[in-house]
Nucleic acid binder design. Structure first.
Length: 212
DNA sequence: GAAAAGATGTTCT
DNA sequence: GAACATCTTTTCA
């Protein structure tokens, strides 16, 4: 197993989800070089998680990638929108981390064209991130991230001032896992989904220091 | 700034 | 036919 796979399988999923906050998401496409800091994640804990696509060992051709190797991509469509997970834990252990929001760093102009929006609306939600990056199909589904154009840079990390923990967004609250505290985000960052502007940290966007 | 409704693909009953 | 790991637009405050 390489170091990339080890990172996504040597700690509990909720710990990895928090460690991903502040890391750089990169996508190289024919639209240019996209980059942004991850500011919001959600952990999905596999067969015992009532909100997971793999609940009760559900396994279909559609969600097969979730059962793949740690560090693989799982790209899926929910209603009219695409989202993506990083697959974590060993092969056949279907856990994943949904990347819900990023703070854009590079290629903001192209993101605005792809989204037909500006400001925080570029990337403050999982479907919005995919639209901003111009990903509107599943051709990257199942690929190992370190060999795909869409990847997370593990060589550096921006340090959040404070990590907030809440129940997940958009999942059925009546399920056994509906109120589990599996959503993590950078306090004060304006790109966190469903956040209120009066809670923003205008000086540092919730990071410990200025731009590296 | 909140709430409601519509668009929409896959899975399960 | 119903539910869903979502987003946009409209309507009302």
């Amino acid at each position: 197993m390489d170091a990339y796979q080890a990172y996504f399988s040597s700690q509990p999923t909720t710990v990895i989800a928090q460690d991903l906050l502040g890391r750089l998401l990169i996508y190289d496409s024919d639209q240019g070089h996209f980059a942004g800091y991850i500011v919001e994640t959600e952990a999905y804990l596999g067969v015992k998680d009532s909100a997971s696509h793999a609940f009760n060992h559900r396994r279909t051709n559609y969600s097969e990638s979730l059962y793949g190797d740690p560090g693989d991509l799982y790209i899926y469509q929910i209603r009219a929108n695409y989202c993506f997970d990083v697959v974590v834990q060993a092969r056949n252990e279907p856990q994943g981390i949904l990347i819900r929001a990023i703070e854009p760093l590079a290629n903001l102009d192209q993101m605005a064209k792809n989204r037909h929006q500006t400001g925080v609306n570029l990337t403050n939600g999982p479907g919005k991130v995919m639209q901003a990056l111009g990903i509107q199909d599943r051709h990257l589904d199942g690929l190992p991230m370190d060999q795909a154009p869409l990847k997370i840079d593990l060589s550096q990390r921006r340090q959040p001032q404070k990590i907030m923990v809440t129940p997940r967004i958009g999942v059925n609250q009546d399920g056994d896992s509906g109120k589990d505290l599996c959503r993590f985000y950078v306090w004060g960052n304006p790109y966190v989904s469903k956040s209120k502007r009066r809670d923003d940290d205008h000086d540092h966007h919730g990071w410990l220091k200025k731009e590296n």
